[in-house]
Design a protein around this nucleic acid. Structure first.
Lengths: 149, 149
DNA sequence: GCTTGACCTGGAGCGTGCTCCAGCAAGTAC
DNA sequence: GTACTTGCTGGAGCACGCTCCAGGTCAAGC
């Protein structure tokens, strides 16, 4: 498998894969006759897993540490497990935080619905709701950061 | 309320508050006799809400847009509500993604437990599990990005 | 043989969102 | 009045994680 294939299958870009190799997140790549990187199933599995670590917002230094532990073999199984457990706990905490944020948004959305019913667009700017309730603002058609957080 | 008080109560730093004012996220501040910024309850509510928008990973450009809509008053209630609804949906999607990631971590953690039982630390490095299963690695005592994501 | 396209390397650049600093002024404590 | 704290402005700098580029190599198709 060449770098473009690995990129397509793992979801990382070729540049990112080379960057990961440079900093030691991906192992030194095997090369074919022409000096081009050649990847196997293990590389694909690892690249895909790295993407998951990225998806949980594990910072680079910890991904590197995990990678180094992995390279040391079975002696580090426990350390790796504990690391994942730590991140699992953080993930669960973030889930709870998100639930709270959804509730906050819901409250504000309901408040807006009520205001919209009261105001019925009289055309005049600067009427109510500026401050005390942390002022809402609206605009359709966004491309919110669905993947972050 | 002075900037340090607002900072303490909103969770933003004084530098961040001044930065927000500079870029237009916070309104131009009222000054006291000595030229220092003076804040009221509305400012605190808005600053706190801005922090929530940050917590849902709303990018700066959208926070700015929301802020501009807010400044225009009731005519933008609907636009603001729709914007929040868009982000609410993204948040719910992210919750689902997090649930999947937790499941992935759980599977790997269980796998590690099994491996640890099999290996029982024979002291030799480089035994099993390097590749096919996206190689796990472990280390205790982290400070994971609990707030991101 | 020649074109075309994928790939290589090393290094510079970038977008985001702050964060820090120098140099100075004003208010407060003693 | 003098030291100390807090705040001000404008601008530089930073951490993170890629992303892009120039200039060159390699291999396959025609």
């Amino acid at each position: 498998m060449r770098i473009s294939d690995l990129a397509a299958k793992s979801g990382l870009s070729p540049d990112t894969i080379r960057y990961y190799e440079r900093i030691g997140l991906m192992p030194q790549s095997v090369r074919d006759g022409g000096g081009r990187r050649s990847y196997g199933a293990q590389d694909l599995a690892w690249a895909s897993f790295l993407q998951k670590l990225q998806a949980i917002n594990m910072p680079m230094r910890d991904r590197l540490e995990y990678s180094r532990l992995r390279a040391r073999g079975d002696a580090t199984l426990r350390a790796r497990r504990e690391m994942l457990e730590t991140y699992r706990a953080a993930l669960v905490a973030r889930q709870a935080e998100l639930a709270g944020l959804v509730a906050t948004l819901d409250a504000k959305i309901i408040h807006y619905h009520e205001m919209e019913g009261t105001v019925e667009d009289d055309g005049s700017p600067h009427s109510h709701d500026r401050g005390g309730c942390a002022a809402p603002l609206d605009r359709p058609g966004g491309r919110p950061n669905a993947h972050a957080g």
